[in-house]
Design a protein around this nucleic acid. Sequence first.
DNA 1: CTTTTTATAGTCGTACTGACTATTACTCGT
DNA 2: ACGAGTAATAGTCAGTACGACTATAAAAAG
Lengths: 247, 247
Amino acid sequence: MRARGGLAPEGYDKYAFEPFAVTVDLAVLTVRAGELEVLLVERGQEPYAGRWALPGGFVLPKESAETAARRVLAVETGIPDLSRLHLEQLRTYSEPDRDPRMRVVSVAFAALLPDPPEPHGGGDAAQARWLPYGSVGPLAFDHERILADAHERVGAKLEYTCLATSFCPPEFTLGELQRVYETVWGAVLDRPNFRRKVLATPGFVEPVPGAARLTGGRGKPAALYRAGGATALQPPLLRPPSEGRPS
Amino acid sequence: MRARGGLAPEGYDKYAFEPFAVTVDLAVLTVRAGELEVLLVERGQEPYAGRWALPGGFVLPKESAETAARRVLAVETGIPDLSRLHLEQLRTYSEPDRDPRMRVVSVAFAALLPDPPEPHGGGDAAQARWLPYGSVGPLAFDHERILADAHERVGAKLEYTCLATSFCPPEFTLGELQRVYETVWGAVLDRPNFRRKVLATPGFVEPVPGAARLTGGRGKPAALYRAGGATALQPPLLRPPSEGRPS
DNA sequence: CTTTTTATAGTCGTACTGACTATTACTCGT
DNA sequence: ACGAGTAATAGTCAGTACGACTATAAAAAG
């Protein structure tokens, strides 16, 4: 193979390479009412027309993958405020046959968005919606795999980082924070122990003085907290051991 | 922008995208004589001719990035046996100006190779050599950043996985295993405590019955171990806290 | 045969965690 | 108004893991 015309500038003439399309795909997660939800778009055209898929699109010539990810998400879901979006590169999926039409290399991102805003379809997306993580049917392309990888990555990161606050509104109760862990991990945690751990980690959360909120109207009002300055948890807050994951 | 002629098959006509070159870059690490070393190649042509760089090359049309990584490494370093190579995707570097000639998106890998074999230049590499990690001068492109990211990733993975055995020959002593940790982390560990931790983790290592080896000819002969079946370490083996890394 | 070197065995106190129990401050139903 | 229910908060207790350390064993070097 030789490089195609116009694509091999000075210095690359002796190289044989094929130009690929480079895209981004986003697995955007959120927690609403104790349920883990994923932001999906309905494909408007073949292949997989009518199927749900992760939001995604081509990287433009002057963009990095990160920049493209934010743009694509804004276009396909119409969500106006992405300032609280937590974006993190997951990995790149490059199997030659992952798109039946042509060679597409996709840089995938795991993303978190608190307080899930209503999305609208846009761009190539017929519609965009939050769907419960457990009930996503078969997705287009290899998006199911990407989504599962993102879920695993986020679950692991909750263990040793302060990422969980990215799922929460600016001010939150410890109960809400705990529900983030429980929802992502699919496990139940002991409340007093969770409290102790979070409060004992310097910089994880800081109290909002004098503020309290009733969670759902019942029970004792809970104190409010903000995210602290720390990013790492040491020692980590481990998931309860389950039979599903290998030790 | 419209897709260039011939690059937008049926179904992509309405999309505007630019074809990119997709490459792989490898940060291959090893431990020799208590020193961390990196496999580098000398660039044979502009830009950065004569500069050291990470081994890398284009992904071919029918390859995944993982496949390309192994092929490229074999071609550029001439190392015959890559069966013990541990390969792991690091992340993808896609800043628009990372290659001065054209748009190149690079999937970077962190890799480990035990018992460092002698490399020979090949392909586009004028020569290939192991160089001490600490003494790598300015590298080509953004390869210094990639190398630093790989080092950080490997260091972190030593904490909670059994990856360290990938730095070791098939049979090794606990002292050799400890030196892997110390070399990658740049820290000194307490020997009895390290022993206790490794042996208490089921499946990390398994003893080779009756075998012993003299490490460097002095001192009491050490028992030999093989890598066990486990892949994860729980609880993790944490790096001693240093001032360099934020908590 | 003493010194040096490395491997191995074991001890002790502290920190962290899992599993609990108890108390407080609200709302809701009657 | 009052008890039941609910959620937040406070605290206890035992087991485990870990850092720091001392002691012993088995080899080579001088």
